[in-house]
Every structure is written in structure tokens, then in C-alpha cells.
Design a protein around this nucleic acid. Sequence first.
DNA 1: CGACTTTGACCTGCGC
DNA 2: GCGCAGGTCAAAGTCG
Length: 520
Amino acid sequence: MGKVVENRVNILANDWFLGLLFNAISISHAKTWTLLQLPSKYSHPSPATVDSSNSGEATSTNGGQVRYMDTGGGGGPEVLTLDTSAPIFLSSSSLTAGAAHGRGVLNQKPPSTPLASGVEMDFFASEKEAATTAASENHHGFQVKKEAVAIQTALQLGNARSSDASNTVDDGMPKEDHNELAAIRAELARMKEENEKLREILSKVSNDYKALQMHLAALMQQPQQFAKDKMLPRQFMDLAPVNSPSNSSTASPGRSVSPPEVGSVGLDPGKASTSSDQQASQEATFRKTRVSVRARSEAPMIADGCQWRKYGQKIAKGNPCPRAYYRCTMAAGCPVRKQVQRCAEDRSVLVTTYEGTHNHPLPPPAMAMASTTSAAATMLLSGSTSSADGMMLANYLLPSSSSMAALSASAPFPSVTLDLTQPPSANPLLQYQLRPPATFASLFGGASRAQYHSNQSTFSGLQVSPETVTAATAAITRDPKFTAALTAAIKSIIGGGQEAAAGTADRGDSGGNDVSGGQK
DNA sequence: CGACTTTGACCTGCGC
DNA sequence: GCGCAGGTCAAAGTCG
């Protein structure tokens, strides 16, 4: 691994928005990011101890920064630094206002480009260098970065000039500079105000999170009652917490499972009321739910953070592309299996189908998608209930049609398909829905392991432009339902286990099949 | 030499 | 009962 190339990027954002930023960056870059460092206030393990083999070297500690290293792409590793230590915050509306409503700092030209440039030369050469590097290399493809530097420069200029003005009041500063300074201060005040709003949102979501946590703790003490109340077949309980004894059976579905009546699995409200259907629902306990993920990828297998061993391959009828069978090897006896097959109609589309529940903790990267697919699977059955969670997930996963996520009533097993091949712009919320767990796990202290890989392969084929990401972020942050959606996402995390996500994980690593436990 | 992949054989369920 | 298809097993081959 070559020398570490550090393109220092100062993005002044609060912790909350850092998550969105990183989300967007991860998606748009289609890179594998390893978390090197969290702000010290999160009290996570030393990043220097994590993934040193990949990162090559650990970066120095800095309490106000979140640092990631790209370890997946070609060329030298790249360090992404998100700075939370600065007192000036970019608010969500500022950052995304261009897509949201046509205004805002980062989508405007810097308040005074010549002025900012001059100051960069004088006081912020490093930032300018960073911006220049980014612009010249066009490496990140994330325009916010460069502009953020400019804004930071401009704002810091305002502060600098402000303090400087105390010594040289009205002596020689050009009038236009005064005007610009006033504009900058006004913008700063507005940003602070927006930041306050964000803090309020964060506070509310945090409270919701705590409430859900407490609720879950209570429910976990009465699992049977929980399943009954929520009208969730037990198999979907299995999709949430790990180490569930109910899913210990690893018998192949084709052998041990009777033909399911998928249509009865909570998809029709009218059917869920009779006792016979409830009985059918209980029988569904023993069925296996499948979550399929369709994504464009040239790789033979999408990366989902888990380790897999191939145990078979078949040519399935109706598709000349072979179907590969994998089982999870992260822990002995893990029943999770997945099938990978290219779509017959479009061979650039990789269809990955997950089945079963992990019986072991998952790393944060796997947790992210595990909770997403788990939520999707939960949605599959909760769609018939009045569960706000289920409806919410349905709204966000199935915003307008079944093109993005489809429930299958014809498949031999209850299944839900997340179609990641659709244009993300059609549903920016879905795009977000697919990634929040890792973000919030990281930012809210859930990342007990200081390692994070973005879902490289899964999203590499999504053709997500930075503009789309920005628009998605804008939609998310200004959406009044965002908190509710976030609650659902967080709940899916909770449901997926605090220390280990459960259910399915649609992140495989083609190079990760390196776990012992062979068949010999 | 251990771990992993490949691949043909085998098992099971299901429809006719 | 038979054939088909999906899924799994396990010996052989490959790789580092």
C-alpha cells in the first residue's frame, strides 16, 4: 500500500449533519471508508488499533475530527477529515439549500470570492491548497468540499476581520469590505439559527431513540406478548435480535419447510383477523423470509460486511447465469445464507438474496445494511397491521410504487426485494433509508468498533451523482417526516440488536471469504 | 498445508 | 411413481 495521501477537507458541520455528509460522500464516492478517528467525546477505542493493515498508518488523534480513510479504491489511500471542532456550523439547509429551495451558503458563490481568495492566500493557505488539490484532481467528485473550504475561509475571514477591526476601527477598511463583512455576519447568524433548529431535531430524535430503547427493553422481557401485540410472526422477530434460538434450525428451506401461503403473511388486512389466519401466521414462524437486493455491480458479489463461503453453484431454470450459494462464515453454525445471481434480463444487475438470521455480532458495516434489510423484511409482514413503524417503512421504502421495493406473493417464501437499480432521484428518501444505521451508529456511539466501510459494491453501480446525493440530503433534512423516518430506522437498529445486527445483511465482500471452518 | 472454490452427485419437494 | 428443479454435499482442484 502506497503512501497515504491526505487531502484534508474541512467541513464545518455539527455532529448531526456530519452523518448526512458522510452518507452522501460514501455513496457518491463509492469508496470503502475505514473510520480512523472519532471525536474524543465519543470515547471510542483508539482508531490506531483498528484496521491498521488496511490503513497502513493511523492518523494522529484530534478530538474534533472524524477521520476516514479510503481503503477500497485504487491508488493511494485517501483520508477524509470531517471537522466538528470549529465553532461555526453549517446547517443542513445551508448545505443543501440549492437543491431544496435555491438558496444557501454552499450553493451560492462565496460572499466575496476575491476577498475570500485574498484571505486564503494570507491566512488559510492550507485550506486553499486543499481546495485546489480537490479541484485539480477532481478526486472526490463532491463539490461541497471545495465550496465548504471557501465558506469556511470567508466566515473565518469575517471573524478575523471582526477582531482585527477592534484594533483598527474604521481605519482603512474598504467600504465594500464592510458590506461584505456585514453580509457574512448576517449569514453566520442565520446559520446559527438553523443550527439551533437542527439541535432541536437532534434532541427530539435522541429522545425518541431513548424512548424506543426503553420500550424495546420492556418488550424484550415479554417476547411472546410482543410478537402477539405486534402481530409479527416470530420469524420476523428473528430478523431483528441475534442469537435467537428460534432460528437455530439451519435446515434448508426446500427440505424442511412446507409450502408457504405467502399471501397470508400479513399482507392483506382482511386476512389477518381470523383465527385460522393467525394460525397460518404462526406457522409462518417456521418459514424463512428472504430479502433480495438488486444492485448494479460488475463485481461477482456485492460487499456487505459479512464473510461468506461459497458452497454451491447451479444453473437455475430460466436464467443462463449461474446462481451461487454462499453461507456466512463469520461464526460457526451461522445459518445465514445468500444466493447471488445475475439478472437474466440485465446482466449488469446483481441479485442477492439473503435468508436467515445471523447468530453472531456483526461489524458496523454489516449492521448498517442488516438493519435496512431487516426493516424491509419487517415491513413485509407489518404491512397488514396498523403499526406505524410498518406503515412508515412502507412509505419510505415503497413511496409510490413497487418498483423500488417489491413484496412477493408468488415466491415460495415471503420475500421483499429492494431494487437499488432504480434512479435514486426517484426516491431520495429510499436512498437515505438504506444507510442511516451506520451513520447514526457512528455518530451516536453505536460504532463500538472503529471501523466503517461504506457499502462500496452495493452502491457503486447506483450511478448516484453528487447532485443527487445533495438533493437527497436536502429532501431528508427538510422533510418534516424525517424524524419519524429516523425513528423507524433507529428502531430497526434496536430491533437488530444493540451489539449485533440481525436479520439479513446485504453486504458481502468478495475478498472476505477468509474465515476458517472449511468443509474438509 | 490450510483455506477456499469448483463441480458433479445426491437429496428433497413438488407437480403431473 | 416419475421427472424436474432447487438446494446441498463433498471430493477434487486451486491458491497463497
